[in-house]
């Protein structure tokens, strides 16, 4: 692998990592702050992509469709929290898994009824549809670069929002002691409802902006669910910073794992086992830091 190819692959890895961060960050919010295992996270990603497809087609404009889609997702999140999730805070993880697993089945059926089982695609907005020529035969779509930019902006907003605003303070307080926060006169129920809706919107938003490059198809949610959990667990539950570091690690390992040849005793280790590489990373990190890289441990 020459230097230019290496550089491009590194860029691919970082770009993929940033996208993973965006998908996983909603999960780390809900999982880390509220203590709810939400395995329907992938479904929200899928719903987002389908929303993008129908709303952007409806309005005929990417940006309007995106805005409308985020609003719908926000309300969906609020409604789901009120209907189901608020009963789960004091229950054990198994019951949370059961309820959110049920949501996966419901959303998959609803998707089939409302949108059908076809594969769809969402056009890239004209403003971002060009590409940059990297080598004589390889170009890089501008949309992917824009996507990376959006992920970085979201990361900064989340970090500032949680560390340096009053709402962020309430969220963090609720995370360390729910009852005490309540006793101080903070409506923690409302804060949690907001956090859950934010998590849902983030998942849906990442589905929406991924839709133009990922296409829209029935099983798409399940694909991102597992890798999101890997990112969240490696980074440490509830840590935005951890999710970012872990997502970049996973993105780079996944990218290089697919193409690098590492020969051990005449057997091609990496490309053959690329599917395992990110899980191997997770296992190694958990061996030394069971709470994840930036996890606090309980």
């Amino acid at each position: 692998m020459d230097a230019i190819t290496f550089f491009i692959q590194a860029m691919n890895g970082i770009q993929y990592g940033l996208l993973l961060f965006l998908v996983a960050t909603g999960l780390t919010l809900i999982f880390g702050i509220m203590g709810v295992i939400n395995i329907a996270h992938g479904s929200f990603y899928m719903v987002g992509a389908y929303l993008a497809w129908s709303l952007m087609g409806w309005f005929g404009n990417f940006w309007v469709g995106l805005f409308a889609g985020v609003l719908v997702a926000l309300f969906l999140g609020l409604a789901l929290e009120w209907l189901f999730i608020r009963f789960l805070y004091d229950r054990d993880h198994l019951q949370q898994v059961l309820v959110t697993y049920g949501l996966i089945l419901i959303f998959s059926e609803l998707r089939s009824i409302l949108w059908g089982d076809d594969v769809h695609s969402v056009p890239i907005p004209e403003l971002l549809s060009g590409s940059i020529q990297l080598t004589e035969n390889l170009a890089y779509p501008i949309y992917r670069l824009w996507l990376s930019g959006v992920c970085i902006v979201i990361a900064i907003l989340m970090y500032v929002g949680i560390q340096h605003t009053r709402l962020g303070m309430m969220i963090r307080a609720g995370e360390s002691d729910r009852d005490m926060t309540k006793a101080l006169g903070i409506n923690i129920g409302l804060v949690y409802r907001f956090v859950f809706a934010l998590g849902v919107s983030l998942a849906a938003f990442s589905g929406m902006i991924s839709a133009p490059i990922a296409s829209v198809f029935p099983g798409m949610g399940n694909q991102v669910l597992i890798v999101s959990f890997v990112v969240v667990v490696i980074g440490g539950l509830g840590s935005i910073k951890g999710a970012m570091v872990a997502a970049l690690m996973v993105g780079l390992i996944d990218t290089f794992g697919k193409v690098l040849n590492v020969n051990i005793l005449g057997i091609n280790i990496l490309p053959e086992m690329a599917g395992m590489s990110i899980f191997a990373l997770m296992a190694i990190i958990l061996m030394f830091r069971p709470q994840g890289i930036f996890g606090k441990g309980h």
Partner: peptide
């Protein structure tokens, strides 16, 4: 032969490899 773990759909690394192998 380039394999992508099933059902992963992140192909960017593969495409870069194709471009460099011509």
């Amino acid at each position: 032969e380039l394999f992508v773990p099933f059902p992963n759909v992140e192909f960017q690394a593969i495409l870069t490899e194709i471009a460099s192998l011509r």
